[in-house]
């Protein structure tokens, strides 16, 4: 089986600062890669470089063997800030690219948008504008918008970081369902439990370098890399403090 996404010796520099240092990563079809690491480690930059939104200083990004360009439909991206278009209803947010990029007739595009919204559990709210939706609902619309274009790889850039805690579950559940149905994805997230249960592999990034790339059991099981262990310990102290710990 060939990798659907190949990242080869990817580099990004801004001025003298090396943000990503020769990162290589092969992603197989159906894989869900969790990307974790401290703030400023380059997680979001990695996704943005794979998406083609940030320029790369070296290396390449191939999707099914071809260099990917933003907008060619190979890669879809879900942003931390949802980035829905405020003047369009949820349905029109999803249908717009189908119509104007794919040239789909309005009726078909609307039907497809409706189906995508149903997939994320929002079939009933297609007529609402983003301002009339909760944060979690907005993010689900954003996922539907990306999904409807049927990208080969889906990138999630901290999809729940802008949400109130009680709204994260609905978004995480949608992502989990997609992963289970075989959608290839990279997910940057600080929700460790979610990353552990979702991912086929976890990539730990620090200072623009892949420190560890291994199945979640290995990364979270406490084996190996001291930097990873320190990071996870700090995280656990924050979210799951117990008297004995």
């Amino acid at each position: 089986m060939n990798p659907v996404l190949q990242v080869r010796a990817l580099e990004r520099r801004v001025g003298d600062v090396e943000i990503l240092r020769r990162i290589s990563l092969d992603v197989m079809p159906g894989e869900a890669i969790g990307v974790i690491g401290p703030s400023g480690s380059g997680k979001s930059s990695l996704l943005r470089c794979i998406a083609g939104l940030d320029p790369i200083s070296g290396g390449d990004v191939l999707v099914e063997g071809r260099t990917a360009k933003p907008g060619d439909g190979a890669i879809g991206m879900v942003f931390q800030q949802f980035n829905l278009w405020p003047h369009l209803t949820a349905r029109d947010n999803v249908a717009l690219a189908l119509k104007v990029v794919r040239g789909m007739p309005a009726k078909d595009a609307d039907a497809k948008a409706e189906a995508a919204l149903t997939k994320v559990g929002l079939g009933a709210l297609g007529a609402r504008k983003p301002a009339a939706l909760s944060g979690g609902q907005q993010q689900r619309v954003a996922i539907a918008r990306t999904l409807a274009m049927e990208p080969r790889v889906l990138l999630f850039d901290e999809p729940t970081a802008a949400l109130d805690p009680e709204l994260t579950t609905e978004v995480l559940d949608v992502i989990r369902t997609l992963a289970a149905s075989g959608v290839t994805m990279l997910v940057v997230s600080h929700e460790m439990g979610f990353v552990a249960s979702l991912s086929t592999r976890v990539v730990f990034l620090d200072h623009g370098v892949v420190v560890q790339a291994a199945p979640p059991g290995e990364v979270f099981g406490g084996g190996g890399e001291p930097r990873v262990k320190t990071f996870l310990k700090t995280y656990l102290e924050r979210v799951a403090w117990t008297k004995d710990a």
């Binding site: 998406a51 939104l53 933003p70 907008g71 060619d72 439909g73 890669i75 879809g76 991206m77 942003f79 800030q81 980035n83 829905l84 278009w85 405020p86 717009l96 690219a97 104007v100 990029v101 954003a142 918008r145 990306t146 274009m149």
Partner: peptide, 11 residues
């Protein structure tokens, strides 16, 4: 970000 979303979707 709203413009980046449009770019990713191929507009």
């Amino acid at each position: 970000g709203q413009l980046e979303a449009a770019r990713m979707l191929g507009l």
